[in-house]
Amino acid sequence: AEYTLTISSWAPPTHGINAKMWPGLIKMIEDATDGRVTAEVKLGIAPPPAQMDLVQDGAADMSIIFHGYQAGRFVTTKLIELPGYEGSAEAASVAYWRVFEKYLSKANEHRGVKVIALHTHGPAQLHTNVKVTALDQIKGLKLRVPGGVGGDVGAALGATGIKVPAPKVYETLASKAADGVVIPMESRKGFRLVEVAPYVYRMPGGFYRGSFAMIMNEDAFAALPEDIRKALAEKVFGEPASRMLGKVWDEIDAIGLEETLKTPGNEIVDASAEDVAAYKPIADKIIAKVLDEVAAAGVDAKAAYAMIREEMAKAE
């Protein structure tokens, strides 16, 4: 290839992010440019919250960021993390990109880097090492929750928050420093939760969805010839990449589910109708709070929220 881009990534090497998402994106880039551009993934250059600085200053050409790791910097990205959206990660990721173009990009929260895709993982469910069968049992549990909406949900349900990055979840649960974690089904395989959190409590639509972006160094993009830039902009960056990434999240969620079903001792409990109803007002309160925050960032929050629901309904 004429151009080889460097990707900085985190998460374990076998996790879907590194095993499927980057390879998928690299393939899209190669196909769109007839193999003139390719990329290679490097792990462990710096911790997750450092990734945006790495890309901004050109220590790497591309990276993946989890918005919840940078409290204060990202507010409008919380919109896609809200509980209650029905639909796949693919539908959510496509909707996310469209609403970003129309509304969220105005807040300019990713200033300094080029956003090339936005995506969310599948609905986050509760995974515990003590059996949970009802919503009110969550109160008092020590739960690992991420930043962003996930943290708000944990607090609203009366759980004590344990703060560790996702790759440390296994050790935290194994040492019983936490009773459980709210994370998508894929982590049952990706972070080996089948071993340390045998019980799953599922809420339709999940407790929240985590928000990710793929970002690129602006100069690295500008340094590519115009025809390549055009091909990437049309065929890869934006909606096509976001759709592909969302689809991978759905795929690895399915793998996580499969792994759970075939692991002896693992058990999945679905929230009862009463618990779903009981969760609704809790979720509504969080939604209202986040919409206020997003509006304060200068975005038409209500319209953006309505658009996500609409787009996701369209995709079904």
């Binding site: 710096a46 790495l54 220590a59």
Partner: peptide, 20 residues
């Protein structure tokens, strides 16, 4: 690292590692 990427990138990586 600077020879593989850029001086700015390399120094930024080092500065970030100091902080992190």
């Amino acid at each position: 690292y600077a020879m593989e990427t850029s001086m700015r990138g390399a120094v930024s990586m080092a500065g970030r590692l100091l902080i992190d």
